[in-house]
Amino acid sequence: MSNDIRSSHRYTPKFLIVLRYILAILVTLIMVFPIYWMVITSLKTPEELLLPVPTLWPKKFAWHNYRDVLKMAPFGQYIYNTIVMTLGIMALQLFTGIFAAYGFSHGRFKGQNVLFLVVLGALMIPIQVIFVPIYVMVAKLNWINTFAGLILPNAVSAYFIFMLRQSFKSVDKSYIEAARVDGMGRIGVIFNVLVPMCKPTVLTVTIITFIDGWNSYFWPKMVTTKPFRRTLALGVQELRRSYAGIETWNYNQIMAGATMSIIPIVILFIFLQKYIISGVSKAAMK
């Protein structure tokens, strides 16, 4: 990345460097601890779970917790639902987003600016304010417990359009004109010129859409009432069964479910963090 400003130009005492390492390692350990604790708890037996002093490493690895969880709840179905929902949202947001970003950056039509304000205005109206009427609408359409109900209200992301439009705008008009002269149509220009030239942004917003979809909780909670259409984030909650107000003690099973639900995201993060990080700094530059 870049050089450290404070130590690049002046002699720094050695003990300060050591102190910095110690502090950084400490912070990293604290940050990683909840994940570690989740995995470790998922491998404990119920007896070990309730020891007065928690053990940092399981005495006996209870791998069967994972098998039990798969039997307790339809996790396969949750995973399927989550994948279909996430891919559906991703596909629709890419479709609507790429075309709209083209229209608002390189297109020319009457009312363009006003209509772009309509897009920006949507950023000011969060789902948390309008979920009641959307729920009423979706219920009227009989879309409760359907993929249509899960996906369609999320078909457009105003943020996605905004980010892509900025990126498309940075492509010089001459590239587009040249492609048009070569006989390329609008769709050809979008997919052979603009998208390849803005690949980092397209990838970044796609990855963020995927993660947001996978992790989404608020809307799936409203629109699904039955286990056969529940998504993973909700499925983990289903494991917390309480009987007549008595606290649940199956934390090992809950943690096994939790561990399974985050594996795809952790893998994605490890391999694609470059794009996620660039997305973070891009968002801040606007």
Binding site: F99, R108, K110, V156
Partner: peptide, 23 residues
């Protein structure tokens, strides 16, 4: 060009602007 932005606008009207009016 206008047709390119129509799908996004239609969804925004159905799932953002209509609901706020309905609210």
């Amino acid at each position: 060009d206008f047709m390119c932005v129509v799908p996004a606008l239609v969804f925004l009207i159905i799932f953002v602007y209509y609901p706020i009016v309905h609210l």
